[in-house]
Design a protein around this nucleic acid. Structure first.
Lengths: 142, 142
DNA sequence: AGAAACCCTGTAGCCGCTACAGAGTCAAGC
DNA sequence: GCTTGACTCTGTAGCGGCTACAGGGTTTCT
C-alpha cells in the first residue's frame, strides 16, 4: 500500500501521514526501489488508532504515550486511566468556558438588533465601555 | 505611561503589547528620548477593547475590523452584527462537538476502572478495535 | 507520446502568543 | 561611584497540528 491509499482509507491527508512519521508517531515504512513508501496492515491500524485518539482531541504527545502502552502489552495500565482522566478534565474545563462565552456573546448581541450608525451601535458601546472598566452586558458579574 | 505600566493595568503581557503593535492592532506610540514607548489614555482604552474582544474569543482579524468601525463612527454597523453572529456560530459549533467529546471520553473511561496489564485494558481495547473499524463504546453510533 | 495523477524532500505559513538572546537604560542602595 | 536589579529595546525562534507550497521525479492512463 502506498501513502495515498493509506491516507485515503483512513481519511487522513497525505502530508499529515508524513508529518506523523516525522514526529515519530508512525514508524518509517519500507521503501520501494523508487523511494516510495510502502505500508502494511500494522501501519493502517496504527494510523487509525492515532486518528481515533485525535478525534477525542488528545494531544499528539499523549497519543505517543498511549502507543507506547500498546507496544508493551505486559505493562500496567494505570497511567492510561490518568491520561484519559486528564483529557476529560481538559474537555470539561473548556466546555465550561465555552458555555460562559456563549452567554456573553448572546448578551452582547442583544445590544444591537438593527443596523444603524456605529456611533449608536449597542454592541460597540458595550465593547468600548468595557475599555473604560465599566460594567457591560456581556461580562456582567452574574 | 511606559509599556510595563500599560501591560500591568490591562493584565496583558508586555510582549503581547508589542505583538499587537507589530500586528497593527495598536498604533505605534510616541517614544521617549531613550527609545522607550510612551502611551496615553487612548492606547489604554484600545488595548482594553482588544482584550475584551479576545475574552470573547474573537480572532484578531475580527478585532481589527471592529476597531475600524470604532474609528469611523458614521459608518453603518450592520457588519458588526454579522461579525458577532459569526462568532456565536463558531462558539455554538464548538460547544456541540465538545459535548459529544465529553460523552465519548466518559464512555471510554468506563471501559477500565482498575489498573491491570495493558493487554487487558478496556480503554486500549476500545481504541485498538476502532483501529480495525469495529464499533467502540466511545464512538458508538448513538 | 503526452498529460494527469501520484510520489519525493524540504521549507514556510497558519494562530496568538511566549520565550528567549543580547543589548541598552534607569533608579535605589552601599 | 559602583553594583544590583528592574525595566526597556530589537529580533528571532518556538509552541501544536497540521497545511501548502516549490521544485523535482515516477507512474499510469489515454
Amino acid at each position: 500500500m502506498r501513502i495515498g491509499e493509506l491516507a485515503g482509507s483512513t481519511g487522513v491527508d497525505v502530508e499529515t501521514v508524513r508529518y506523523y512519521e516525522k514526529s515519530g508517531l508512525l514508524p518509517p515504512p519500507a521503501r520501494e526501489a523508487n523511494g516510495y513508501r510502502t505500508y502494511g496492515k500494522t501501519h493502517l491500524e496504527r494510523l487509525a488508532f492515532i486518528r481515533h485518539c485525535r478525534a477525542l482531541d488528545m494531544p499528539l504527545a499523549d497519543v505517543t504515550r498511549l502507543l507506547n502502552f500498546v507496544d508493551r502489552p505486559a505493562s500496567d495500565c494505570g497511567d492510561i486511566n490518568v491520561l484519559v482522566d486528564q483529557q476529560i478534565g481538559r474537555v470539561k474545563a473548556r466546555l465550561k468556558s465555552m458555555r460562559a462565552l456563549e452567554k456573553q456573546l448572546t448578551a452582547l448581541r442583544r445590544q444591537c438588533s438593527e443596523p444603524h450608525s456605529t456611533k449608536e451601535c449597542g454592541i460597540l458601546h458595550e465593547l468600548v465601555s468595557a475599555a473604560h472598566g465599566e460594567a457591560c452586558a456581556c461580562h456582567a458579574e452574574h
